[in-house]
Design a protein around this nucleic acid. Sequence first.
DNA 1: AAGCTTGTTCATTTTTTTCTAAACAGCTTA
DNA 2: TAAGCTGTTTAGAAAAAAATGAACAAGCTT
Lengths: 179, 179
Amino acid sequence: MPKLRLRPENASPPEALASSESQLAIQAQFIELFVSAAGVLGVPRSIGEIYGVIFAAPQPLTFQEIVERLALSKGSVSQGLRALRSLGAVRTAYVPGDRRDYFEPETELRNLVAGLLRDRINPHLEQARDRLGKVRQQVSAGQGLSATEAEVLRSRVNKLESWRKKGALLLPLVAKVLG
Amino acid sequence: MPKLRLRPENASPPEALASSESQLAIQAQFIELFVSAAGVLGVPRSIGEIYGVIFAAPQPLTFQEIVERLALSKGSVSQGLRALRSLGAVRTAYVPGDRRDYFEPETELRNLVAGLLRDRINPHLEQARDRLGKVRQQVSAGQGLSATEAEVLRSRVNKLESWRKKGALLLPLVAKVLG
DNA sequence: AAGCTTGTTCATTTTTTTCTAAACAGCTTA
DNA sequence: TAAGCTGTTTAGAAAAAAATGAACAAGCTT
């Protein structure tokens, strides 16, 4: 016997502003764009979908609306939103008298890129700096290499160091151009 | 009965310059660095290993040497080297009188980045431009949206367009700074 | 307190990506 | 031509990543 439901399927839920066909088509286009971007950035497809559907919405969306429009599980949407908030790519909007979270997109490229740099690039750059120091040590201490081999290895370490410096130089420049 | 071998395992192969312990340790450090970079870039770990072992070698390496030092299958090494060559991250070096391929690293950051932009970023940027045009069309033609909704959507499309422009502006700048 | 609603967590399943191993193709030399 | 290298291709195995769904927590409302 099916469980009693206080709000059966055929009743209108509060927010169900029936999206027009053209709005759905537009939404789908936006989503495609961000799914493709997610591919480039190496983040899960669902995260691209979630950002896309929020970006494509004229008003902030609730959690439930995102789940329904994308046909994703609550779990995926919850995780995806957490990642997007940590990147600063979506914010929650407060709606008085409503307990639910509403989500709206960060649309400033500068801020989006800053989030990516902070969360994904910088940690690796720092780790690289430490490792590089270790390699340099080992190369200088290295026994059992001919003089010319040692010379090549030293120059390789120097190359890496110069990459790192250029990278460190580049990041602020990127931020500036996008600002 | 084992197949007859003209060059049994216990005979020295031509190139087997026994690597010293310290050289192995240095190699391992370099490889770690590039494996970590592979993670950031979203390429397979094995590709990071292969570039790393080539970068760490004072002389160009043969296919077989790469397979042995990394304990990867021939198939993985073959695929990895193909990807790296297509990016312009490794080159083949010619050794007179030797039929085998020798591989050496591209060490100019500028060229490495150029390869990444060419193979991974540019195609997506072009695709994005086309899709963006499509979205813009749909938004202008869009029926069934309130005036304010249509306005928000138009401004979102404009945002995307401005991102694309900034991106297109940025790429040459990156190339210049790294050069 | 009991029962809703809203959203999170996490063990499991599903899907995708990566790796391997074996067959094979093209050369080269015997 | 046969036999040996060198490397490529690809079907399938293995591993990794992502998505699901069910249990759970926290806060309302009655």
